[in-house]
Amino acid sequence: MKIFNNILKALTLSSVLIAGLAQAEIAVIVSASNANGNLDQDTIARVFLGKSKTFPDGSQAVPVDQTAGSDSREAFSSTVLGKSSSQLKAYWSRLIFTGKGTPPKESGDDAAVKNLVANNPNLIGYVDSAVVDGSVKVVYKF
């Protein structure tokens, strides 16, 4: 019985460590040439939900989503937007049907989004913070 308890403790500890490693930090990014600094969660959510088309400095803000189902997108949607993927799908379906909005373009994985954002000061996206380099500026992290 003692061996069984030790094995159970080891498995529990291993699963906690693996779960901690699986949760990467997500960075919301803009081009390094974008004049905006830190943005708050509300501002970011308004841009990604189509409620605002500009950054705080008045320049155009164009959101870029990762491919549906990616870990980064799921984390961003639930944490920043406060919606599950099914809630977001329903939200955008209503707006599209009424002609009141268009969802952000899906632009691939972390590397693809980083490259797009780096080359256009009007874009805003999110990536795993491990891929951030000098070509982009982090405006929010979670």
Rank of each mutant, 00 (worst) to 15 (best):
A35E: 11
S59N: 15
S15T: 15
K137C: 00
S93V: 04
K89D: 03
S77P: 01
L123P: 07
N119M: 06
K141R: 15
I26P: 04
G37P: 05
L81F: 04
S31E: 03
A68W: 14
I96A: 08
V16D: 04
V131N: 01
R73W: 08
N122S: 11
A32G: 01
S59Q: 14
A111E: 07
M1G: 11
A130T: 07
G69W: 09
K9L: 11
A24F: 08
D128L: 05
K51Q: 15
D65C: 07
V132W: 00
G69A: 09
S129L: 02
V139D: 03
N5T: 15
S107V: 08
F76N: 01
A24Q: 10
P121Q: 05
W92V: 04
D57Q: 14
P104T: 07
L13T: 12
S78F: 14
G99Q: 12
K89R: 08
I18Y: 07
N38C: 03
S72A: 15
N6T: 15
D57L: 02
F76G: 00
Q66M: 06
G50P: 00
T102A: 02
L81N: 01
A32H: 09
F142G: 08
S70F: 06
Y140G: 01
N119Y: 11
K105W: 13
S78W: 15
Q41R: 15
L116T: 10
N36F: 02
L116A: 04
I96Q: 14
V28C: 00
D110Q: 04
D42Q: 12
R94I: 03
L21G: 13
S59V: 08
P103Y: 09
L13Y: 12
P63C: 07
A32C: 00
R46E: 07
L81D: 02
K2Q: 11
I124P: 00
I7V: 15
A75S: 14
A24L: 04
L21C: 12
R73C: 02
V117A: 01
K137P: 02
L17K: 08
V80A: 01
R46Y: 03
N5D: 11
S129Q: 06
K2N: 09
S93A: 09
Q66P: 08
A32W: 04
L21Q: 13
V80Y: 07
D133W: 10
K105H: 14
N36A: 06
G69H: 07
F55E: 00
T102K: 11
S52G: 02
K137M: 02
L8S: 09
Q87E: 12
V62N: 08
T54C: 07
E74S: 12
A19Q: 12
A32R: 12
V62I: 15
G99D: 05
K53E: 04
T98E: 14
A112H: 05
G125P: 03
I7A: 13
